[in-house]
Design a protein around this nucleic acid. Structure first.
Lengths: 212, 212
DNA sequence: TAGCCCTTATGAACAATGTTCACAAAAACA
DNA sequence: TGTTTTTGTGAACATTGTTCATAAGGGCTA
């Protein structure tokens, strides 16, 4: 007996299938490996069918990005929970948390290179300013950085704190990005971990010194 | 009378023309705006002629990148010369130089957004590991960072110093990149300058503290 | 169940790419 | 001047994303 599906069921199923296929494609061959015909072949549908469930291939890429961000968040929270609450207090603890998160970020990027890179490769064609939910996701993830930063610098006004979180993430992101690209010469993951920890620690120390 | 040109003269001239056209295209429409047919039209040659003087469009992009790096270097040295030699000494002076350079980098990126972005957008298709002269250029530019870093941390071994220079650049690059992308929310250039200075200063302070 | 409508599926067709190639033109050389 | 090598040409090819007329099939009312 053939299982019948209602229309919207089929639609949702196809969308899920396509996203899964897209994720595999990105993981295996990068964002440039996301091709309409390949997706259609792997999902077992016609090329045109793609555009019934998704507006663009960019749309699909965004869906993949969302899943990547979710995986990243999982990793971040997992790493955060590894620090015992009573280990130490005050600035030391906050600094430790920041270092831990930075290294978790690095490790995630290294372990999911293609998918992670794809997050920052996408073209922003001036026209589509990125959907709201995606922005919200990003902002929410930033919360993870702001909290330890707040512990570190209690007297910092919230808006400056947000700015600082942004910059701190950017700095770590830079180290991770250029570290994982072979573009600038190869570095071992272990060495990258050291550098990341060193820099986050230095930044924390420097910021703390400035505050007093 | 028609001016005749020897073959290699023509070739070089066409190459120069193409590079100039490519530079304009990248500056105006980004790396994605580098199209074979547009170039041919602007250079007044056939599309096929391009491939007589250049292997790829990627090759042309590299030529453009080289010019961008040259312009950046000019800016960096100009900014470096603005610091009076006698202003202050030791760690303060070194820190000041690093901040100055970071801000010069930021300003250059902001003033030459498209060309600068193109430097890091290029596809690295695993196959062509980037020509040697390009790597050499990059390495040479890193020298500008290493020197003040050496002043700041005289007891640091050279290989670690190179690593540190790399990471410092990466961190600043991250702040600049994510700052100029609208992807993460807009920030004014002035605010970015403050953040950059704040972070470089914090890093310098933190590294110095670690050393003693 | 029959009949109508609207959603979905299809794959050929379109437009825009980079790149190649057989051939033409021109320069280099003997 | 005649031959050979280099350079120029633009049509042709392959690969993209995206669209569209058309066909197929589910959804609903009678």
């Amino acid at each position: 007996m053939v299982i019948k599906m209602t229309n919207s069921e089929r639609k949702q199923k196809l969308k899920a299938t396509l996203i899964a296929a897209a994720e595999r494609a990105v993981a295996a061959r990068g964002l440039a490996g996301l091709k309409a015909r390949d997706l259609a072949a792997e999902a077992g549908c016609a090329v045109g069918a793609i555009y019934n469930v998704v507006a663009d291939l960019d749309d699909l890429a965004l869906a993949v990005h969302a899943r990547t961000l979710a995986a990243l968040e999982k990793e971040l929270t997992a790493s955060a929970s590894k620090i015992p609450v009573e280990a130490c207090a005050g600035p030391q603890r906050a600094t430790g948390q920041l270092i831990q998160m930075a290294i978790a970020y690095l490790d995630f990027a290294a372990a999911n290179k293609a998918r992670w890179r794809a997050l920052f490769e996408g073209r922003v064609p001036e026209g589509k300013p990125m959907p709201e939910w995606y922005r919200a996701e990003q902002t929410r993830l930033f919360g993870y950085i702001e909290q330890p930063l707040r512990d570190l610098l209690p007297s910092m006004p919230p808006d400056q704190l947000a700015m600082l979180a942004r910059s701190l993430f950017s700095a770590v992101h830079g180290i991770v990005t250029l570290g994982l690209e072979e573009k600038l010469g190869a570095v071992s993951l272990e060495e990258l971990r050291n550098q990341t920890a060193l820099f986050v620690s230095a930044i924390a120390k420097g910021l703390l010194a400035r505050e007093n």
